[in-house]
Design a binder for these strands. Structure first.
Lengths: 321, 321
DNA sequence: CTGTTAGCGCTTTCAG
DNA sequence: CTGAAAGCGCTAACAG
């Protein structure tokens, strides 16, 4: 019994022949150790819970990929919880502490106060990724600054009429990033003494097709912009396809810049703001490890590096515009 | 002790006042039940293990979404294992039986014989999705037929020179679908008495950018096709962008059809073959439930419905071609 | 309706 | 180096 355990855990205090014997018998009997019993006595599960909204969005998936890589590398498993509604978020945050995970990574979801309280009191170590809360260690991104970087790039290319295509504030789950990026655009304009024209802003449901419609509306209107900042690469692609459908050359007649630097941005030549999706996913789990191993005093905040990536969908403003 | 358990499990045999007392004390002490102990004694974990290759590919993610929906609806959690190399597949299949999951869904991965044997002998109930093995219940798709549907659609539109852009056989992990779809294309051609021209085939690494390069090469060559079947929607998008970059109108001068019917296919107007990614993910978990609840005699095989979805990237062959 | 008791299958002292 | 024994925290059967 105890010896079997020692073999399983590769304890050195087992003679080679005993080990061989045990292994043979295990094979003969088709013995499989019981994870629950093991977890019970060891007081940990080697699982990390990962809570994400809208699993299918490419940006979310890239984050998950970074998370997964580190979790798997540390020998743990990743338990995924997808959240697409407020009710689900609520019920999930309630039962999450009881799931016995060694740690939690919560992505992009604003934390209601009571859930935060409960997690802190009775939950496992938790980090937030792309979400803010004073009491948790977190990896965040400065969306306002990101929007500003995007707009500055276009301003540097001579553009003055800069439009914005983004998400309608998704009231229930409360995502702010699109809104913050638009504020960054406004800031950049005002820094250069230019006015922000609300007529050049279109927001709607998230998605490529929806963004295409928003952009088409914007481009067909009077005083169309010479450049558009999209709140995400997904939306930028929609904007570009709308522009091309309407016969505008990109970037000849319209410059477009996205946000995220998704994997597909590079092959598409999409100009964008890189926020290191995979990289920050990785960082979040590493942060969690630091907490778990006790090397951290209080909650800390890591800010993701933002980088403008100029490719071929943004160019100089057309002459005469 | 036992009463607390009863409260936790919502047993009716608890007086309201006792229940209230227990709940109050639980709250005061910040009591959280231990999942491992519970799992140990109940003999199950309420977790389903999901093994997927290349988590970041959109098609895989749509499958996962279907899986997740059903798993979550049944009150279980989904533990994700991402596989991007043969070594990882091997080590994973070895330790998977010990993870204590109530069931396993294995997506798109060919099962080596020994791993299959071990899973059958000592593993939990397992279903395969988009993978074939006589001994497992599985949800599969007829890729040859799918390729044929795509090609027939183009043939019906008058095309005779039909190209194919797909994946190089990814030797290590052994994905066959691209290859099978190309065989379907060939079959469709031969059904109409047309020869399959290997000069119109390009295969390479999976991805939009790579597909664009393959397509560009194909379109610049002599005797270019009037239509191209891509092995996936992702690749079809690459093909289309290459065509447009080279100045070919789609579908005016080149028809393109993809495969999968990803979410983005509809907004892009991409013609494609729908294989119900989300839907089959759902089916796989439902199949697993049927096994778990004992309502299944032997391994069964469910074939996914395939449907041609004609949109606006495919049209009649140009006059004179 | 509530308390007592016996394990679930493992790891970890502690003796030998 | 190996076996015996205790106990992780819960549930289920059994008395009361």
């Amino acid at each position: 019994m105890a010896t079997v355990s020692r073999v399983l855990n590769e304890s050195p205090n087992v003679s080679p022949e005993t080990r061989a014997n045990v292994l043979r018998v295990m094979a003969d009997f088709g013995f499989v150790p019981n994870a629950s019993a093991r977890n019970l006595v060891r007081g940990r599960t080697d699982t990390i819970g990962v809570v994400v909204p809208f699993l299918t969005r490419p940006g979310v998936v890239e984050r998950v990929r970074g998370i997964e890589a580190v979790v798997a590398a540390s020998g743990s498993s990743m338990v995924m919880y997808n959240v697409e509604s407020v009710e689900r978020r609520e019920s999930l945050l309630r039962v999450l502490p009881e799931q016995g995970h060694d740690g939690l990574v919560i992505v992009s979801l604003p934390m209601p106060h009571d859930a935060a309280q409960r997690l802190l009191e009775v939950g496992p170590p938790t980090v937030l990724l792309d979400a803010h809360h004073r009491s948790f260690s977190r990896v965040v991104s400065n969306d306002i600054h990101g929007g500003r970087l995007a707009a500055r790039h276009l301003l540097d290319l001579g553009h003055r009429r800069i439009g914005f295509v983004g998400d309608a504030p998704r009231l229930p789950l409360g995502f702010w990033s699109s809104r913050l990026r638009s504020i960054g655009v406004r800031l950049a304009l005002e820094e250069r003494g230019l006015a922000w024209d609300p007529a050049l802003v279109r927001v709607g449901e998230h998605g490529q097709g929806q963004a295409a419609e928003l952009a088409a509306d914007l481009l067909r209107g009077p005083g169309r912009p010479t450049a558009i900042v999209a709140a995400s690469d997904t939306q930028a692609i929609g904007v570009i396809s709308a522009a091309r459908t309407l016969g505008f050359d990109v970037p000849g007649e319209l410059s477009v810049i996205g946000y995220d630097d998704l994997e597909l941005a590079e092959p598409l030549g999409l100009s964008t703001v890189r926020q290191g999706l995979t990289e920050t996913g990785r960082q979040a789990v590493e942060l969690l490890h630091r907490i778990t191993t006790g090397g951290l005093a209080g909650p800390i905040r890591i800010e993701a590096a933002l980088e403008l990536v100029a490719r071929s969908t943004s160019g100089r403003v057309p002459a005469g515009a």
